[in-house]
Design a protein around this nucleic acid. Structure first.
Lengths: 336, 336
DNA sequence: CTGAAAGCGCTTACAG
DNA sequence: CTGAAAGCGCTTACAG
């Protein structure tokens, strides 16, 4: 059951290891005849190249690192899970592996440590949704050792490709929809404005108000301390207690869930007493009472795109850094 | 920005590479004095061992492979996502990496191909939830190259450690609970009996019936063709149309979601017209109307346990193959 | 058209 | 107490 190496193949085929290598990689001409012998030997010995050796020799590993923030045992962070799945499956199609690390603390230290670990593993690229808005620390850490692709959050302090959903547009559309239904007092529940994602959604919301001559009011905006179920619950409670909103836009899927819990628990009639638009389209939004109108983010597609851009950067070395914005979509159901 | 290797460290410290290596790995005595010099050099050069080289030399990679079945773009497979997170985070704590591959087709071919890929990557262990009940094909593929830990499904045709939830107990408890509430006509919606997980739940269900002198009837059991939302919807429809059940036990979280959709759409009053117990406790089960009673599986904990057993097998080489069964728990809410 | 040999960055038996 | 050197399994410049 010993691993068979290139040496055994060479021996069986009666050629040098160089020739075997060239056959495998198609890297110089080999006569049909010897090629056939080599291929035959490879097949009968069930030869598989040792990727560790290849990595060492080639200084690359066919592996991409992924870092996303996720609370431990958080049942809710569907978004990054979907993104990761998109990445994983397109990398796989292209013969790449994905080394996936979640960042369970909210701190940047863990992130840095993780990148250092990845570095010693010789990753060929890094896809990251940083906990921090300012990612200039990546300059020293990564330099130009390998390409970096940012997802979900727009990086500051460094150039780089960036794949994100059109949060501004989505939030704008949600808010406008509520306005067109006749609402003027529209509440917003959102995550920390410290990350670009939340900021954009906030701006989409306030721009829609402005465009429709509705005065913005701080009192109708709740910034959830953490994007958790409980925090969503508390935020909805706070907003509903003031009695001053007739509609609610919740700019994050976990917060949406928590807010729905509050509304349901208190028998608030949706959409009669309060209209609701949530964020992210997951199956559970179809079974609430009533089914939720939401802004859908193309999470899986963001993953696919991120992987594609990464592969392109690795092979083409094109230095252009583009921002890719995937459109969001309003899924109309019965909550507004 | 060149990577610094053991050679540079040795040079700076004025010692041989052998000594540096021994300092790093604590593998033979080194005088305090030289050790200090080496450590200092390592620190100032920010030395990080090249893991590819270590892998090649040591024939191990500090990497564990994980294969679970997941449909592409399936928003619903929370269970394995949670398991994966448990695995990942405990491996990380122990300096191991996780190579996570999802199996998007239902076929065993893709699984085999994936394992071959892993093999060339020199993984130190494999954690797998096979699409197949009979995993004897692993014998040839893996042999005793590295330990294998099975999760969620009990393997046939091969010995190996196995971590699973107590599906029998959970299903039994759910069914008994319904019986104790006075129900005699209890429907079951479950996934394919081709995997041990579903079979066990089926048996828990029928055993509970038997223990309470209720005649089992095939007509009250629907085996969903695929564990999808739509399939859950259809299964509920089928069962409810027969008008012959007053309670429903749904033995899978995605099916539960689909079934709830049907019930909600058709304004079936829960629990008055039909009592419901679902499977898996995710946040969304708290916001249905009414909130769902469910059997909770310790998914994250299964991941943690699987990783722990794996690490133990790698270091201790203990040949004992145990089956670990983590208890499920009934979470009582208002749907029954 | 193909082979002999160096070298990627480590670890470890051997030697002193 | 420490070093010189072989070797893990590949790739590739050099040579013919």
């Amino acid at each position: 059951m010993n691993r068979v190496g290139i040496k055994e193949v060479a021996k069986m085929a009666g050629v040098s290891t160089a020739t075997v290598s060239h056959v495998i990689n198609n890297t110089r001409f080999v006569s049909e005849e010897t090629k056939a012998k080599v291929l035959h030997a490879m097949k009968t010995l069930d030869y598989r190249p040792n990727l560790a050796a290849q990595s060492l020799r080639n200084q690359r590993s066919n592996t991409i690192g992924l870092i996303v923030p996720t609370l431990p045992a958080d049942t809710s962070n569907f978004f990054f899970m979907m993104v990761a799945q998109g990445i994983q499956q397109t990398l796989k199609k292209n013969g790449y592996f994905l080394l996936h690390s979640t960042n369970s603390t909210e701190g940047i230290e863990e992130e840095i440590e993780q990148i250092k670990l990845f570095n010693s593993k010789l990753i060929d690229g890094l896809i990251i949704a940083s906990v921090s808005d300012d990612v200039s620390y990546l300059k020293d850490l990564v330099g130009d050792k390998y390409p970096v692709v940012f997802i979900d959050r727009k990086p500051k302090g460094i150039k780089g490709d960036c794949i994100l959903a059109d949060g501004f547009g989505g939030a704008y559309q949600a808010t406008r929809t509520l306005i067109e239904k006749g609402h003027r007092k529209i509440g917003l529940i959102t995550g920390s404005l410290g990350i670009s994602t939340s900021r954009e959604r906030f701006e989409g919301y306030s721009k829609a108000l402005r465009d429709h001559d509705i005065t913005y009011s701080d009192d109708r905006v709740v910034i959830a301390s953490t994007p958790s179920f409980d925090s969503g619950y508390e935020s909805a409670k706070k907003l509903m207690s003031s009695q001053d909103v007739t509609a609610l836009f919740i700019a994050n899927n976990v917060l949406t869930m928590g807010a729905m819990k509050y509304l349901q628990e208190n028998q608030v009639k949706i959409p009669d007493e309060v209209a609701v638009i949530g964020f992210d389209d997951y199956d559970w939004t179809r079974i609430t009472a009533p089914p939720l109108t939401v802004i859908q983010q193309p999470s899986y597609e963001i993953g696919v795109k991120a992987a594609e851009i990464m592969l392109k950067k690795i092979s083409k070395k094109n230095a252009k850094n583009k921002e890719y914005r995937l459109p969001t979509k309003l899924i109309m159901r019965q909550s507004c």
